[in-house]
Amino acid sequence: MTLSRRALRWSSALAVTATLWGAGPALADGTPGNTTPPPPPPHNDGGASGKEVYASTGRSQIQVTYLKGGKGGGKKGNLAPIDPNWEPPACWYEPIFTPEQLKDFVKDSGGDGPVNIHRFWYGEGLWTDHYRDGKATDNMDDGSAAPGYKDYNIGKKGYFWRSVAPDDSHPDSWDCGRTMFWQDAGEIPKVPEAPTPKTLAEYAYDKVKIPETDIELKPQAKSTVNLPTWVWLDKGTFKDVKVRAALPKTDLWAETTAKPKSLHLEPGTDDAETFPASGECAINDDGSIGTPYQKGDSKEEPPCGIKYLRATDGEPYQLKASVTWEISWQGSDNDGVHAMPDGTFETTQEMNVQEVQSINR
């Protein structure tokens, strides 16, 4: 999306919001003629299951399961996509209510709740008008008419679908402005931003937990000017991480897999050389990176390492080590394996460098 489109969307969104909150009848509390604007809705931070999800458009029902990796102790973090333009989906639709659940929700809550990400209805009036008595309303994404329903569709098999946005301030979340709508059981809506296996795969990408990069060094935490520091990771240190994301009430699922690909070193100073020169240490066939230091290797160039050319002066260098992970996914569409942008996870450790040209062996 271009900047101009986003700016236009923000302008339109502000105008729509002003209309919704200021018009009175559109968001009346059920009392005829009441034009007092209601208070703004609470921040969308509800739960992901049970009654809590009914009151939230900020929490997805998507269930995430770790099939491989991602468990156990130690520090972990999320991947940062190498492609700066890539980001997980801003919004999509999910099945929320059966007819009976919607009827009970209106009765139990008094009708206070969202019908999409940016539209919050107060009072039973509009809920009953649209979902019980068949009166049409409008959709915020394209301004089209949303036909009404009779008696909440009681007796029919299916769900009312509503939009979800992890961050409702994201400009693209306005793409999911359709008023909560009906879809027969076993079917995925044919609307823009409807969920797909790719949607779930990208959602799972954002949930992948990667172990902290704890590299082996020789010498450890202290190097010597003009003598190389060997860097390596033993095989098995980093294993594949596989995450499964499934959307309840549908057959949609996707599995996102992260595989370690390479280790990148940044010495923390320009007065240094890396081995190889690119600083990118490829993963070996056995899953290791680099080669462990052996006695007598002090003057050899390591396959993966650093040589500092100037000593530290009270302030250690900040050595950054980031592992690049290759990301792919496959899903319920049975359309094979697809690539996604590589991701990285970076850690920093202090390196002191001394002038004495000797090394502990």
Rank of each mutant, 00 (worst) to 15 (best):
R6E: 13
L8P: 02
W10M: 13
S12P: 02
L14H: 06
L14G: 08
V16F: 07
G22W: 04
G24E: 04
P25Y: 08
A28Y: 11
A28Q: 12
D29I: 12
T31Y: 08
P38C: 05
P42C: 05
H43L: 14
S49E: 15
E52G: 04
V53R: 14
Y54G: 04
S60K: 07
K68P: 13
K76Q: 11
K76L: 06
I82W: 01
D83R: 03
P84Q: 08
N85M: 12
E87M: 09
P89M: 05
P89V: 12
A90F: 03
W92Q: 10
I96F: 04
F97V: 07
P99I: 06
L102A: 03
D104G: 04
D104E: 15
S109A: 09
G113W: 12
G113T: 09
G113M: 12
N116F: 03
N116V: 09
I117M: 05
H118K: 11
F120V: 14
W121R: 11
Y122G: 01
G123T: 10
E124T: 15
E124H: 12
E124Y: 13
L126N: 15
H130F: 07
R132W: 13
R132P: 14
G143T: 08
A146R: 11
P147G: 08
D151S: 06
K156G: 04
G158M: 04
F160K: 09
F160T: 06
S163G: 15
D167S: 07
P171I: 02
C176H: 04
G177Q: 04
G186R: 06
P195T: 10
T199S: 03
A204I: 08
K209L: 12
I210C: 01
I210G: 00
L217E: 13
P219V: 11
Q220M: 11
S223Y: 12
T229C: 02
W232F: 11
L233V: 13
T237D: 11
F238C: 05
V241D: 00
V243T: 04
P248W: 00
T250E: 01
A254R: 02
T256M: 01
A258D: 00
H264P: 00
E266N: 06
E266Y: 06
P267L: 02
G268Q: 00
D270S: 07
T274H: 02
F275W: 00
G279L: 00
A282M: 03
N284G: 00
G287M: 02
I289F: 04
T291V: 04
T291L: 03
G296D: 02
K299R: 03
P303S: 01
C304M: 00
C304T: 07
G305D: 01
K307I: 03
A311W: 04
A311D: 06
A311R: 11
G314F: 05
E315A: 10
K320R: 09
K320W: 05
A321L: 09
S322F: 13
V323Q: 02
W325K: 05
E326M: 08
G331W: 09
D335P: 12
D335T: 14
V337T: 15
A339F: 12
A339Y: 12
M340K: 07
M340Y: 15
P341T: 15
T344A: 14
Q357H: 14
I359S: 15
